[in-house]
Each structure stands twice: as structure tokens, then as C-alpha cells.
Simulated scan of single mutants.
Amino acid sequence: MNGVLKGKLLENAMLVEQAASNSKEQFANSPDLNKALIDAIMETLEAHQIMSHQALNSARVRSGLKEILLEPAQLYEALRERSAPL
């Protein structure tokens, strides 16, 4: 599920811009990241229904997902790479 969520978040132009303009700590505290995470979870709901329900119903699970996305999955770094000019 994390790979799917990361892929959806990488498509978010606003997150790309925020990752390019802010420190990792500022980015992690962005309300836009929280909203985008919920939106991505909802989009994957059908494919991952049980896990998605757990994530949507638990701030703790969402916090864990965000931590995984920011650290081992390196979402912030991947978004910053997308903001770099070609």
C-alpha cells in the first residue's frame, strides 16, 4: 500500500512545490500533506479496503503511514526531485 500511496502523493503538484520550498520538518507538518494523504488513502480504498479503513479511522495509523512515507519511502526527497528543472 505504501508504494501506491507514495505514487499518488508524487503526482500532487502542490506537494512537489512544498517539498521544494520547505524543510523536511516544515513539510511533515503541512496540513496539505495530511489532506493529500487522506485523499490518496480514499483513492486506493477499493484496492486495499481493509487497510484503508484502518488508516481512515485511526490518526495513529495515518501518522505511522506518514512516518514511513517520509523516512524509508523518502517521499519528501522524491517530491523535491520532481520539482527540479529538466
Rank of each mutant, 00 (worst) to 15 (best):
I68G: 05
A28L: 08
V16M: 11
A55H: 03
A36R: 13
D32T: 03
L45N: 02
A78N: 09
A19Y: 06
M42D: 05
Q74N: 14
V61W: 08
L9H: 02
M51K: 14
L10C: 11
M1E: 02
G7T: 13
A78T: 03
Q49C: 04
L65W: 06
R82F: 02
S83E: 05
E46Q: 11
A78C: 01
L70D: 02
E67P: 00
E77V: 09
S23E: 14
L56N: 03
A36I: 10
M51V: 02
N29R: 15
L37G: 01
E43H: 12
V16E: 15
L86G: 09
E11W: 00
A13M: 09
Q18R: 13
K35T: 10
L69H: 03
E11M: 12
D39S: 13
N29I: 00
E71W: 07
E17Y: 10
Y76M: 04
G64Y: 08
E17F: 07
N22D: 00
E67G: 04
S83F: 10
L70K: 11
I41D: 02
D39G: 05
E67M: 10
Q54C: 06
R62S: 04
K6F: 03
K8G: 01
E17W: 03
A13R: 13
N2A: 07
Q49Y: 13
G7C: 07
L9R: 11
G64K: 08
I38E: 14
N12P: 06
M51P: 00
K6V: 04
L75T: 00
S83H: 12
S52R: 05
L86N: 10
V16Y: 05
A13K: 14
L79E: 01
D32P: 04
R60G: 04
M42F: 06
L9E: 00
S30E: 07
L56G: 04
L75I: 01
E25D: 15
M1D: 01
A47D: 15
S30M: 09
E81L: 12
L86F: 07
Q49W: 06
S23C: 10
I41T: 03
E46Y: 11
R62M: 10
K6A: 12
G64V: 05
P72C: 08
L9K: 13
G64D: 14
A19W: 06
K6C: 11
R82A: 02
G3E: 14
A59C: 03
A28S: 15
A28N: 12
N2C: 09
A40S: 15
E11T: 07
S30T: 02
L70F: 09
